[in-house]
Design a protein around this nucleic acid. Structure first.
Lengths: 259, 259
DNA sequence: CACGTCGGTTTGTCCGACAACCCGATCTTA
DNA sequence: TAAGATCGGGTTGTCGGACAAACCGACGTG
């Protein structure tokens, strides 16, 4: 037990070659020396440059592909890439699930994110944002009896508001939360009769507030809207202390997606 | 350009085998059928089970390793794992860098996150949280003349507050922002003489507010503190509209080495 | 110009191999 | 007997080579 002189030396380690390959390419891309959409060489090419076997290069590339720094064109050529939001969101969501985050934590986060999103949107929203929201409202009015579509449209509405905020950090932070809360919304529309109408009313008020750049109204209605969600959630018989659902998220391997 | 009948068919695709392998294992882990720290078989084992070559299994495993669902023990055996926050934060930070997010976006996010963190912390903080914060304050008082240590201690202080909030979603959302803002803080202490003192004063007030569960004081001082940061930032001569620095983030592999 | 053919490239997958390493079991030796 | 040294099997990291399928680009034909 007399572990004399512990911790004097660092754990000695020789990173495997595929990691070194990945890190080397990673550095070039993150630093900007390889701008997005620049073609990287072929696998054989890279193998020659790094002086390692093609299998080794492939393992390194798989890592970068996975983290979104490299993408395969339809032609399968490798090009540098900017990680897509959707992929990151999926990952963060999965982590939160595995950490068994509670609905309370999620609800608090939503409360924070949506209130800030609407505030920023009041000042930054453009005409295009209003058009998109207006379109969403129209479809919502036609879907009041369809819980599944209502859940979708609600998610879309709030995503559009986040976009209107003009803040991409906020958008990115919101996405995983949105993914996790989604499956809890549909049951609300199924079990709480007035939920759909109240939601539509709130969305319309929020739209008007954004349209008229009325900060007070925006704050007020977002607050009510979020609170409404909380009440609806409880009326489905669930506790805020439950861990979030193990949603069947899209696998990280989907490559299509915007932004 | 008479693109008649576009989009009628889905893009046909056959996912490569290594992806199928990865997705299969991913599903088992995310669904909870393979709990954390459960050993996965050996590579040869998996190759046999899936009926593919070991190389193929290796590529699939690399992907999962990369996304944190699988970890290699010191013994190098594979075990299921819960993605660690630090790794995710690094990734999100990189994405934000590559998207050339502006300091304004970052600042707005910080404002939102810190204000909510302190509010939640007022009600949820424990004695341990106070102890950790108090320890941080002591070290801060001894580091007023050392810009680098001040930057570190400031980051630590706010991380501790986030922890005291008891909300892991908030913590996780905060981390990437914290990583990105960090390199901008040190220059403030170097160029703004009163920055260190003001920061310490604010931290002490925040500590007192938490200690006495005084919500109003907590809100007030966090607001001032964040505003102070904004002012300090501008006094370093930078514009809020600049894109964030291309920080040399730790690689997602926490190893160092040349190639 | 539209269309079909054809050869070179590149990827995805497989096979077999081997050194380095880890672990547990066995053997030495004080 | 117990600490320490040794050994062998199991695994990973890496290598070399191989091949079918898909893709690309050029060419030839109508």
């Amino acid at each position: 037990m007399a572990q004399a002189e512990a911790d004097r030396f660092e754990r000695i380690s020789a990173p495997p070659a595929y990691q070194l390959v990945a890190e080397a390419i990673e550095r070039e891309i993150v630093s900007g020396r390889i701008p997005p959409d620049t073609p990287i060489g072929t696998e054989a090419d890279l193998a020659k440059q790094f002086g390692v076997n093609r299998s080794t290069v492939r393992e390194g590339i798989r890592c970068l592909e996975q983290s979104g720094l490299i993408r395969r064109e339809p032609s399968r050529r490798l090009v540098a890439s900017v990680p897509r939001h959707a992929k990151l969101a999926t990952r963060v969501s999965r982590a939160l699930i595995l950490h068994q985050v509670s609905f309370r934590e999620l609800y608090e986060a939503i409360d924070m994110l949506e209130r800030n999103a609407i505030e920023l949107a009041v000042t930054h929203r453009t005409g295009d944002d209003l058009d998109a929201l207006s379109d969403n409202l129209a479809r919502t009015r036609a879907a009041l009896d369809d819980p599944e579509r209502m859940a979708d449209l609600d998610t879309e509405f709030h995503t559009l508001i986040a976009r209107a905020s003009g803040n991409r950090v906020l958008q990115l932070a919101r996405e995983p939360v949105s993914l996790l809360i989604y499956p809890a919304t549909q049951p609300i529309f199924e079990q709480v009769p007035e939920a759909a109408d109240r939601l539509l009313a709130a969305h319309e008020k929020l739209f008007d507030a954004l349209s008229g750049r009325n900060m007070d109204a925006a704050r007020l209605w977002m607050r009510r809207h979020v609170a409404d969600f909380g009440k609806g959630f409880r009326r489905t018989g669930r506790s805020l202390e439950d861990p979030v659902d193990r949603v069947p998220l899209d696998s990280v391997f989907q490559t299509r997606g915007e932004l």
